[in-house]
């Protein structure tokens, strides 16, 4: 992108880059440092030996996986519909969906409580999964629609001339091509579901259904606050997300590069 034929200019680029990236790294260093203060690795031992940890982990994973499945399936169907099929008043429906991007969770707490209670879903995982998915869908549909838009019509038409149905075209042609944007959808949905604090707190009553975001609570009392273990739990909570991102990084970047957002 930038011209750096000479070694010296390349070095200058590298230095500029490093200086600029330092402010982004320092808070991460402070976090790890804080988690090792006081009892040192003992903080991690203490967090890992919270008896409920595996349970919280499982619950969070369950919610994340279910949310990802719903979001992925609904997003792909809708994005294909919006990008490649005939719908009268398409932009109206699209905007109806996209406008929901602006809804913050905190606005929805009271109405969602009424809804979940009347559907008998309060205190089930659904009370968390459904709103999470509904809030995630507008963004992922936007991403995926733009991506599928970029798939040449000819590819799908070729399949249709061969006698395949729309569904087959979707299944055999579109879906395999959307793996990169699928990775992006998975990463964004995982972040949303895994990091969510408010919905599990309000809608899951049972102590056995608590999620990983409640973990720091074990080290914060009314009149006590063990910051070192809070930070250690933060690191442990964040690890699966970082790992998931690293695993999907390549696909993720490709997904966003095919003109996902423009």
């Amino acid at each position: 992108m930038l011209e750096s034929r000479r070694r010296s200019s390349r070095l200058i680029l590298q230095i500029v880059l490093t200086v600029l990236v330092i402010p982004f790294v320092l808070p991460l260093v402070a976090m790890v440092q804080g988690s090792l203060a006081g009892a040192g690795w003992g903080n991690y031992v203490a967090v890992l030996s919270v008896p409920e940890l595996p349970l919280f982990f499982r619950n969070s994973a369950l919610i994340a996986v279910a949310t990802i499945v719903i979001v992925y399936v609904f997003t792909m169907l809708a994005a294909f519909g919006f990008a490649k099929l005939h719908i009268r008043g398409k932009s109206f429906y699209f905007w109806l969906l996209i406008a929901a991007l602006t809804l913050p969770e905190v606005v929805l707490l009271t109405p969602l409580f009424a809804t979940m209670t009347s559907l008998n879903l309060y205190n089930t995982y659904w009370a968390v999964i459904l709103p999470l998915s509904a809030l995630q869908l507008p963004f992922t549909v936007l991403l995926a629609r733009n991506f599928i838009d970029g798939i040449p019509d000819e590819l799908i038409e070729a399949a249709r001339i061969d006698g395949a149905s729309t569904a087959a075209g979707f299944w055999y042609i579109v879906l395999p091509l959307t793996r990169p944007i699928g990775a992006a959808i998975i990463v964004f949905t995982l972040l949303g579901a895994w990091n969510d604090y408010l919905l599990p707190l309000v809608f899951l009553v049972d102590p056995s259904t608590q999620t990983i975001t409640q973990l720091p609570q074990f080290f914060v009392g009314q009149f006590s606050n063990d910051q070192t273990k809070v930070l250690a739990s933060a690191v442990i909570t964040a690890l699966p997300e970082v790992v998931a991102y690293l695993c999907l990084q390549r696909l993720f970047e490709r997904g966003l590069s095919a003109g996902a957002l423009k």
Binding site: L62, V69, S165, T166, A167, D206, T209
Partner: peptide, 25 residues
């Protein structure tokens, strides 16, 4: 339409997985 059928099937499977989920809670 086949498309709708396969969709429905996918959703039923999702629904079954979901039922199992609700059972846990």
């Amino acid at each position: 339409r086949r498309s709708a059928k396969s969709l429905a099937a996918a959703l039923i499977v999702a629904g079954l997985a979901a039922g199992a989920l609700a059972g846990c809670s």
